[in-house]
Amino acid sequence: MGKTFARPEALAETITHYCPGCTHGVAHRLVAEVIDELGIRGRTVGIAPVGCAVLCYNYFTFDFQESAHGRAPAMATGIKRVRPDLIVFTYQGDGDLASIGMGEIVHAANRGEKFTTIFINNAVYGMTGGQMAPTTMPDQRTTTSPFGRKAAEVGMPIRVAEMLATLQTPAYISRQSVIKPKYITKARKAIQKAFTYQMENRCFSLVELVSTCPTNWGMTPVDAVKWAEEKMLPYYPLGEFKTPA
C-alpha cells in the first residue's frame, strides 16, 4: 500500500508562524492540494494580503506577490489582464478584503476578472491585534469594541458572499468553513470548483471560508470552533450563492 496522505508539492515544508488552533493552515493546505490536483503549480501566481496571511507565501512553492492592504484584487487584475494564461488567486482576510479593500474586490468581481479569491472570514483583524472587522459579530468584543460590537453605532456584519452574489458577472460565489472535518471536505470541493472555473476562462470566483482566531477571540481552539459554529454559521450560512449558468 502506497502513501495515502502526503504533503502536497505546492505546500512548502516549513514551520508555521500561525497561532495554535488557527485555521489558515487548513485553508493553505486545501489550496495547495487543489493546485496539485489540477497540475497548475507552474503557471500559478498567488497574491498575499496584509494581515496574518501576508507571510502565506512562505508556505507555498510557486510564484507569489505580496500586496498592500486590500489591493490584492487590483494586483490580480493587472496580472490576469496582461497574462491571461496564468492562474491567479488572491488570499485575503476580512479586514483586508471587507474593509480597506472593499472597493477593489467589488469592482474586480463586477468586471468579471478571471481570477479566484480565497476569503478568510474570522470576524476579527488578526495581525494588528484583534481589532473589530466589518465581519465582527454583534456584541463580539474586540480590542476596538471592548463593550461588544453595537449595531446601532457601526452597523451589522457584512455578508460578503451574499453581497457579491448580487452582481451579475461573477461565475462562482460560495461560502464554506474550515473549522471541522465535515466542513473541510466541502470547502475543498468549492476551492477546486473555483480554480476549475478559472481554468475554463470563466469570470471571477470567490470562496469565503468561515474560520477561527482563538488568539484574538481569547478562547481555546476547541471553544473557538464551538463559538464559530454557534455564533457565526447561523449568520454566515454555508452554501453556493452563485454558480455558472
Partner: peptide, 26 residues
C-alpha cells in the same frame, strides 16, 4: 494591447504593480 479603466487611482497603481511584477511593460 491591454486597456483597462480602473475604479480608482489607488486600484490602478496596483494593477500596474501586478502587471509589472509579472514582467509586463506597463
Amino acid at each position: 494591447g491591454v486597456f483597462l479603466q480602473g475604479e480608482s487611482e489607488v486600484a490602478v497603481s496596483y494593477m500596474i504593480f501586478g502587471a509589472a511584477a509579472c514582467g509586463a511593460r506597463v
